[in-house]
Amino acid sequence: MLDFLYQTLLAFDATLRIATPLMLCAMAGIFSERSGIVDISLEGKLLSGAFVAATVAALTGSAWLGLGCAILAGITMSLIHGFACITHKGDQVVSGVAINILASGLTIVLGIALFKRGGQTPSLPKEDRFTPIEWWGVEMMDSVPVLGSIYRQLISGHNMLVYVALLCVPLTAFILYKTRFGLRLRAVGEVPQAVDSAGISVTWLRYRALILGGALCGIAGAYLSIAQGGNFVKEMSAGKGYIALAAVIFGNWKPFTAFFACLMFGFLDAVTARLEGYELFLIGEIPSQLMQAIPYILTVLLLAGFIGKPRPPAAIGQPYHK
């Protein structure tokens, strides 16, 4: 029984670690999509963030500088996206595809040029990374039977960026629903004409939404390469940006529901690794590939209206013409 509890705890612990970049990217996606800009470039921004974080941390020996530059990298990618589809009213999906391909090309080309290791960055020593933080009183709580291990495994012992990601969710909800900026942001994704006729710049609002999103993707990238991992490996985002996008859609473009979608997708991933080779009662062995495909299958089913009813922002995907 205790062993089962321990296994469950470990699975939840892994869920949190896997879901962290998803949460950050999903919040980024919510900002951008609620302002009316389709954001399939989450993947590219995540990848650029990861590369820049690892590169800067390796060159300067500072994880904080790495994080800062990763945020700038995410924002830069967002600005390219904005320049193409806000300023020049280009197709948002095409621009997103371009950014994703650019990111995967640039990170490899620059990585090889800088470090000559086939696209990888050097492994960072522990002190140049964001390492797990042990909370106060872990030793003391250990004597408490169940709560002690929950406290040690699940609540304490993550790196800083995990907590940042967890804070981002309520923060995003607060900005979106409780501030004037958030109200305008939501309005510009539904009826940009109304926002414009109130004398507020549609362009600047959408740019700000993209910049926020870029910053969040940058943090997510830093998480991948200098917190969870210790260096950048080419294509290390490995579709996480797309899963985050799926979580945004699954969460109906709302922060908390998207957060739960991220946790669910993270949990599926965490469980997949543990179920491999196990025969489940009555079901038999579930192929791990099926488990990995579930987020995508669920998203398709949701979009098709078989689970609930998706309600995307009304003006999404349309460039605003005065």
Binding site: A84, H88, D91, S95, A98, I101, A103, G105, V109
Partner: peptide
């Protein structure tokens, strides 16, 4: 230092310029 991945870069730029920035 230049590898075939350079092509990805060119490809991304072309999608950007002839697609997303088609009106520039």
């Amino acid at each position: 230092v230049i590898t075939r991945e350079m092509v990805l870069l060119i490809q991304g730029m072309i999608i950007l310029f002839s697609g997303a920035l088609a009106y520039m």
